[in-house]
Design a protein around this nucleic acid. Structure first.
Lengths: 246, 246
DNA sequence: CCAAAAGTGTTCATGCTACACCCATGA
DNA sequence: TCATGGGTGTAGCATGAACACTTTTGG
C-alpha cells in the first residue's frame, strides 16, 4: 500500500477522556523518545499528514489507533486551521519535514477532530497508550508546538457546544454509569455546578437513560445505582431543534 | 501578485438570500457563458482552488466578491468535503483542469462556507450579480456538478443549526425590518409555522431588537413598524449556553 | 459508630401554548 | 368600502430553580 503523504493537508486530533473527576487530553512528545525527558519537551496533539487518497475520517481513525490502540470511537471534525504562518517556526517545520519524509512542505492546512474516549472511573487513567503519549488535565495544558494550543482550545469550545445538543456524554462514560458521574461530567464540561435533585429529576424524565438493577461495587459508601444509555430509543425520540440535557 | 493555485484545496460557497418569501441560493453556470443557454446547463456552487498562501477565509471572500460584488458579508465555514471520488466524473475534472490552468489535479479537498446576503424584500431578488450567476429557491435546486448538491444540503442543515444559536437572521434581512418579515424568515428556515402573537411577545422581550418610530412605505395595507438589531447590546447580553430565539 | 456519598419532594416563579378579533392603510 | 396584512391579551399548563435531611454501605 502506498503511504505517500499529501504535503498540503494534515489531520490533528484532540482526544478527550474523563476520569470521573477531570477532563483530560492526550498529548504526545514530538520526538517520540521514551518519556525519560532527555529530549526536552516538545508536546503536540496527535496528528499526521494525510496519505494521498485517504479520506480524512480514516486519517483521524488511523491516528487514533496509533496512539491509543482503540477503534470505533467517537470522532467529530470541528474546524480547519489554515493560517499560512502556522508552521512558521523553522525548527518545528524542519522536524515535520524530516519525520514525515516529505521535504517539500511549505504550508499545511490541518483538519481538526475531537474524539471522546471511555476511561475507567477508578481514578487511574491508564489505557493502552503508546509510550510517548500522556494525559494532561485540560486546565493545565503546557505550551504546545505549532498552533496546537489554539486547536485544543477550539476543540474544547466545540465539545461544549456539542454537549448542549448531542448525547456526547455517553462517549466519555463507561457503558454502565451512575447519575452522579453523569452530573459531574456535565459540571466539568459546562463549567458550573448543577443542583443534584433537579438534575436527577430531569434525567429520570428521559426514557432513553435506563436504570439497571445493578449497583456500584468496591466503593466504601452507599453504592449508586447504574444506568445505561439506550441509543435506539434516543434516536426515535430526539427532536431536531431542541437541546439535549441542559 | 502570484495567483498560482494549490492543486489540493478549494473553497466552495453556498450563498443564501431571503426575498421575503423564499430562501434562495446563488448558482453559477460552469461554462461561464452568457445565460442564453447555448452551452447546456452545468450548474455549480461558486468556488475556486485556493491561491497558494491564501487564507481560506480570504479565498471565500474573493469568490463572494467575484460573483456578487459584495464585501464584508457573513461567512461561515461549515464543513469539509473530502471524498476521494468527488471529482471522479472525467468530463468535469477535465473542465476543472482547463479552467484553473492546473493540470496536475487528482484529488481536491474542499472547504465549504455558507454566506448570507441581504436582498431587498420587494419581491425582486436582483443584485449586482455577474451574468453567469442566478438565484434558485432552495426547494427547487437542479442537479449540480461534482458533489455540490451534497454540499448545498449540508449547508442548509448547518444554516438551520446556526439559526438556533446565533443571530444569523439579521444577516438575511435589511437593516430595518418588520417583525413579520423576521417571523416569515424563521418559518422558512425552521420548516414550520410559528404563532404570530407568541412570536411578537418573545421578540418584544429581547432588548436588542429595537423598535423604531418608522414604518414601511409603499405597501397597500397598514404599514408595519420597523425594527433594528442592536449587535452591541446583543453581545453584552448573550449567554453562552442558551439558544437564540426558538 | 463513623465517614462518605446516595437518594428523595415541595413550593414558587417563569415561560410556553393555544386561541380570535379589530385596526390602519392604499387602491 | 374593500382587501390586505398589522397588531393585540388572557388563562391554563409545564418546566426550571431553590432548598435540607435521611439512607446505605464499608471500614
Amino acid at each position: 500500500m502506498d503511504t505517500t503523504r499529501n504535503p498540503y493537508i494534515s489531520v490533528d486530533c484532540v482526544i478527550f477522556g474523563f476520569d470521573g473527576d477531570k477532563l483530560q487530553v492526550l498529548l504526545i512528545n514530538r520526538d517520540r523518545k521514551s518519556s525519560n525527558g532527555k529530549t526536552g519537551n516538545r508536546l503536540k496533539l496527535p496528528g499526521d499528514l494525510i496519505i494521498k487518497g485517504e479520506p480524512l475520517d480514516e486519517s483521524a481513525q488511523r491516528i487514533l489507533k496509533e496512539y491509543t490502540g482503540l477503534e470505533n470511537i467517537y470522532l467529530k471534525q470541528f474546524n480547519v486551521f489554515d493560517n499560512p504562518e502556522r508552521l512558521s517556526n523553522e525548527e518545528n517545520l524542519n522536524w515535520l519535514r524530516k519525520s514525515s519524509g516529505v521535504t517539500d512542505i511549505y504550508r499545511v492546512v490541518t483538519i481538526a477532530y475531537y474524539s471522546l474516549i471511555k476511561l475507567d472511573m477508578s481514578g487511574r487513567t491508564d489505557l493502552s497508550i503508546v509510550y510517548d503519549a500522556r494525559w494532561y488535565p485540560v486546565e493545565k495544558i503546557p505550551g504546545l508546538i505549532f498552533d496546537h494550543n489554539e486547536i485544543l482550545e477550539s476543540g474544547l469550545l466545540n465539545l461544549r457546544k456539542g454537549f448542549l445538543t448531542d448525547p456526547l456524554c455517553f462517549e466519555l462514560l463507561p457503558t454502565k454509569f451512575t447519575l452522579n458521574q453523569l452530573q459531574k461530567l456535565y459540571e466539568v464540561i459546562l463549567g458550573f455546578e448543577l443542583d443534584n435533585r433537579n438534575f436527577r429529576k430531569k434525567i429520570n424524565r428521559l426514557e432513553y437513560i435506563i436504570p439497571l438493577n445493578e449497583r456500584q461495587t468496591g466503593v466504601n459508601h452507599k453504592p449508586a445505582r447504574l444506568y445505561v444509555f439506550d441509543r435506539e430509543k434516543y434516536n426515535v425520540l430526539k427532536k431536531a431543534h431542541t437541546g439535549f440535557i441542559v
